[in-house]
Simulated assay, not measured.
Amino acid sequence: MPELFDNNSIEQWSADGEKEITQRALETARAMLSEYQEPKLDKACDEALLDYIARREIEIPTADELNQTY
């Protein structure tokens, strides 16, 4: 059963504050983001990834350029 869905009766839902699914989802997402801890990467691996990203940014045309060309 998904955790965000409320399967209580309408009376219980109303007594619990009438939270819609979007409100529960936003609260859950904000809690997850506030508790997030970035995993530690090996320094060499991190540098290799940053180098790869920099090379790909040069090789791949920007969205504006793609819109102009095509």
Rank of each mutant, 00 (worst) to 15 (best):
I58G: 05
D16M: 05
D16E: 14
D42K: 06
A54V: 01
R30A: 15
E47I: 10
N67A: 07
I10A: 15
S9I: 06
F5I: 06
Y36V: 07
L41A: 15
P2Y: 00
K19L: 15
E38Y: 07
C45G: 06
S34G: 02
G17S: 06
T22E: 15
R24T: 04
Y70M: 10
G17T: 08
Q23F: 05
M1W: 04
D64R: 05
T62A: 05
E20L: 12
I10M: 13
E20Q: 12
E27N: 08
P39A: 05
I21Y: 15
E47C: 05
R24P: 08
C45L: 13
L66K: 05
E3D: 02
N7I: 07
D6K: 01
R56N: 04
I60E: 08
C45V: 15
I21F: 15
K43A: 15
N67D: 09
A29E: 12
L4M: 10
Y70I: 07
N8K: 03
K40F: 07
Y36P: 07
Y70F: 10
I10P: 08
M32H: 06
L50T: 02
Q12D: 10
E18N: 13
Q37V: 12
L33M: 12
W13V: 01
S34I: 05
Q68S: 08
E47T: 11
D64Y: 06
T69H: 07
A54G: 02
I10S: 10
F5V: 08
Y36Q: 06
E57T: 04
Y52W: 14
M32N: 14
L66C: 09
S9G: 14
S34F: 03
C45R: 11
N8P: 00
S34N: 14
G17H: 02
E38V: 09
A48F: 03
Q23A: 11
N7L: 13
M32S: 12
A44P: 00
T62R: 04
E47P: 02
D16W: 00
R24V: 03
I10Y: 08
I53C: 09
A29S: 13
Q12H: 03
F5S: 04
A63P: 10
E11P: 01
K43D: 14
P61Q: 09
K40L: 11
E18T: 05
A25T: 09
N7A: 12
A31P: 02
R56G: 00
K43S: 13
R24E: 01
A15E: 15
T22W: 14
E3F: 01
L26S: 09
E18M: 08
L26I: 07
L49V: 09
K43F: 08
E3S: 02
T62Y: 04
K19Q: 15
K40W: 11
L4S: 00
W13Y: 05
K19Y: 11
E3C: 00
E18G: 07
D46L: 15
G17N: 04
C45W: 06
L4A: 01
